[in-house]
C-alpha cells in the first residue's frame, strides 16, 4: 500500500526538477485541432499556446516552465472539436507525493 516515508515527509521537492515534480501532460489530436485557441484562452496554467499559420495553426503544450498544466481537463471540456485531453496527471514526489489514486476515468454510471 502506498504511504509516505519519513524521509519523504521531510524532503520538499524541487519544483523545477522533473524527477520530483512533473506537470500534467495533454495530448492534442493534430488532425482534429484547427487552432481556434479556445483551450489556450481558458487554460489556468497558461500551459497551452497556438502556433503555426493557416492549416498548420494548432495548439501546443508548453514544455519548459514548471508548473503549468494541472491536469484539470478544462481544455478538454472547452474544445469544440474534442481535440485535446489530459494524458497524464501532475505527479509530485517527496512531501507532495500523490497517494491512493488510480488512472483517469470519465464519470461511471453505477
Amino acid at each position: 500500500m502506498a504511504y509516505l516515508t519519513l524521509k519523504e515527509r521531510l524532503l520538499i521537492p524541487t519544483y523545477d526538477n522533473p524527477k520530483y515534480a512533473r506537470s500534467g501532460q495533454v495530448v492534442i489530436d493534430m488532425e482534429k485541432c484547427n487552432g481556434c485557441g479556445n483551450c489556450a484562452m481558458i487554460c489556468p496554467g497558461g500551459a497551452l499556446y497556438i502556433a503555426g499559420i493557416g492549416k498548420d495553426k494548432k495548439a501546443h503544450l508548453m514544455e519548459d516552465d514548471f508548473p503549468n498544466c494541472m491536469s484539470c481537463n478544462d481544455c478538454a471540456a472547452m474544445c469544440p472539436r474534442d481535440a485535446v485531453k489530459v494524458s497524464q496527471t501532475y505527479d509530485f514526489g517527496r512531501f507532495y507525493k500523490i497517494l491512493h489514486r488510480g488512472g483517469l476515468s470519465a464519470p461511471r454510471k453505477f
Binding site: D74, A76, A77, K85, G102, G103, A106, P107
Partner: peptide, 11 residues
Amino acid sequence: GNPDGMVEREL
C-alpha cells in the same frame, strides 16, 4: 463559449 462538460479525472 461552452466551457461546461464532463471530463476524465483520477480515480
